[in-house]
């Protein structure tokens, strides 16, 4: 229904788009998670990073302005006959700071995937989401099915508030990714209800 060629139908009513951002360091399982849940093949586009310095405040860590690009992987899920969910996976590194606003404005929430052996990879994403008030969840990807650190240690190390969910999941498992997204959205729902919008 979604992918039918439209030669015979001039213009279809576009879906209502919503999005969730999937952040985390390189190789942490973002694209794997998107691919598990996406109904369409994961697409990749390139976003230029030329405005880096403007929006990142950790000046010591920001490289000179460059014109390199960062790959953005994304997938989609048709939620019902109107709503279409976009899942944008992005490397959560300091030097990609400028993209955060474009990526996250209007998002329902963000999933921060962490590898406990490289916990500091996710600091910029966590900082940004806390600062902007975007609902987020920290998901520890279980590489090899083992958890190297207790979840409470992760919460402590990232200095997360008590109401930020910290869960384990398996980026290679569709049901696990689905359940993690639902947990995130329950948090989003609680925050949206609390603000009365």
């Amino acid at each position: 229904m979604d992918s039918k060629p439209s030669a015979d139908v001039p213009v279809r009513r576009p879906p209502l788009p919503v999005k969730i951002v999937i952040a985390g360091g390189f190789g942490v399982g973002k694209t794997t998670a998107v691919a598990q849940i996406s109904e369409t093949p994961v697409l990749t586009t390139e976003a230029p990073i030329t405005e880096v310095a403007a929006e990142v405040d950790r000046t010591g860590l920001v490289p000179d302005k460059t014109t390199t690009t960062v790959a953005l992987d994304f997938g989609t899920v048709a939620i019902d006959d109107e709503v279409k969910l976009y899942l944008f996976g992005t490397p959560g590194q300091d030097r990609f700071g400028f993209m955060w606003h474009d990526l996250t404005v209007g998002a329902l929430g963000a999933l921060v995937i962490v590898d406990t052996s490289r916990l500091d990879d996710c600091y910029p994403a966590v900082d940004y989401f806390e600062r902007t008030g975007l609902p987020f969840l920290v998901a520890v990807n279980l590489f090899d099915g083992r958890l190297a650190h207790e979840l409470e240690d992760v919460r402590w190390a990232l200095d997360l508030s008590d109401d930020t969910p910290v869960v384990t999941f398996d980026a290679r498992d569709r049901a696990s990714v689905r359940d993690t997204l639902v947990t995130l959205l329950r948090r989003s729902l609680a925050m949206a209800s609390a603000t009365g919008v």
């Binding site: 213009v11 576009p14 879906p15 209502l16 788009p17 919503v18 999005k19 849940i37 899920v77 048709a78 939620i79 019902d80 709503v83 969910l85 209007g106 329902l108 569709r174 689905r178 997204l181 639902v182 959205l185 329950r186 989003s188 729902l189 949206a192 209800s193 919008v197």
Partner: peptide, 26 residues
């Protein structure tokens, strides 16, 4: 071209509930 923008915050709760239901159906 015509654009359909994402919904504004007014219907956020209802939309989140719809997305939760949609995901649970997977």
């Amino acid at each position: 071209l015509a654009v359909r923008h994402p919904e504004d915050a007014r219907h956020r709760v209802q939309i989140i509930e719809r997305v939760i239901r949609g995901l649970q159906a997977i």
